[in-house]
């Protein structure tokens, strides 16, 4: 297990006051908070910063950390001495042991015992799924780090893999429940997030897709085939469709009650003028169509 130098993570001296620690945390939280940060590793850094602040902002945890951390450097191999916590009286204030699932093994090993009792037996975790799972449902293996209290009251993180049948109709932020999977009769609540899809974007239950169309399909109207996560779909392009115009296909977004819509953004793609025949065709169009795209068609 690697030692975590919380002072270094927050960029404060070991004798920093509570006020200095709070200021340092807030400064870093502004920089790395995933809601606002443009840094590539913002989420990982924010977890580290939160973990460091959870320890250093709590006098009990900070005192225990200072006692065991003497002489250790960030990243150094670390084994807590046996009974290192003898003589400490912990109030159990400050964090719910299940929050430790987002923190490091170092935190769980040292401070797991100091959390209060979980307020309810349900557990909560985030899972990453594909948009296809929302359309078709799926069976997915989900790996979780589960905080467990041992006989001496320490919270330890256990790795657990579950084979889960995901119902169709899940959406971003959706909670799904696995009854009785949290131990002691509690439920496991999983919060769904989608991996970024190379073709589709998701807005609530609506699904957006760029749809390339030929100029004659846009001008004359056409029925085109669109590949969807649950199979092909035939969509009618109305005559006179302009590029960039969104076409809404009701009920073909994420399934549900009611289902979302599919929103197609048409992109008119010109055939390349890369053969004599194609060039001749464009030249004929130029001659025969008195069309000015920057003005009005005559």
């Amino acid at each position: 297990m690697e030692f975590r130098n919380y002072y270094e993570i927050l960029g404060v001296r070991k004798d920093a006051s509570q006020d200095e620690i709070k200021k340092a945390f807030r400064k870093l939280a502004r920089r790395y908070h995933p809601d606002v940060s443009r840094e590539a590793d913002a989420e990982r850094r924010m977890k580290e910063i939160n973990e460091a602040y959870t320890v250093l902002s709590d006098p009990e945890k900070r005192a225990a950390y200072d006692r065991i951390g003497q002489g250790y450097r960030q990243g150094q191999d670390f084994r807590p001495p046996p009974d290192w916590d003898a003589g400490f009286e912990f109030s159990g204030k400050g964090f719910d042991p299940r929050e430790a699932a987002g923190f490091s093994d170092f935190f769980s090993q040292i401070f797991g015992r100091m959390g209060g009792q979980p307020r309810r037996a349900d557990h909560h975790a985030k899972v990453l799924l594909d948009l296809e799972d929302a359309y078709r449902g799926a069976v997915r293996q989900i790996a979780l780090r589960v905080p467990k209290m041992d006989a001496s009251g320490h919270v330890l993180l256990e790795n657990r893999t579950l084979n889960v049948k995901i119902p169709k109709g899940v959406h971003e932020g959706q909670i799904i429940r696995l009854a009785g999977q949290a131990g002691q009769g509690g439920d496991l609540l999983l919060e769904v997030h989608f991996r970024q899809h190379e073709r589709f974007s998701v807005e609530g239950l609506d699904v957006h897709l760029a749809l390339p169309v030929a100029p004659w399909e846009a001008a004359l109207g056409a029925i085109v085939q669109v590949g969807m996560p649950d199979g092909d779909l035939k969509v009618r392009i109305p005559p006179g469709t302009r590029g960039g115009r969104p076409l809404r296909v009701h009920g073909k977004g994420i399934p549900g009650n009611p289902p979302g819509d599919l929103i197609l953004k048409t992109e008119i793609v010109l055939p390349p003028a890369d053969t004599p025949a194609a060039k001749a065709f464009y030249e004929k169009m130029a001659r025969e169509f008195p069309f000015d795209p920057r003005g009005r068609a005559e």
Binding site: V139, L162, N163, V164, K165, I166, P167, G169, V170, Q174, I175, I176, R177, L178, A179, Q181, L189, L190
Partner: peptide
């Protein structure tokens, strides 16, 4: 066997 999840 896969555990069945319910939408909440």
């Amino acid at each position: 066997d896969a555990l069945t999840a319910c939408l909440v």
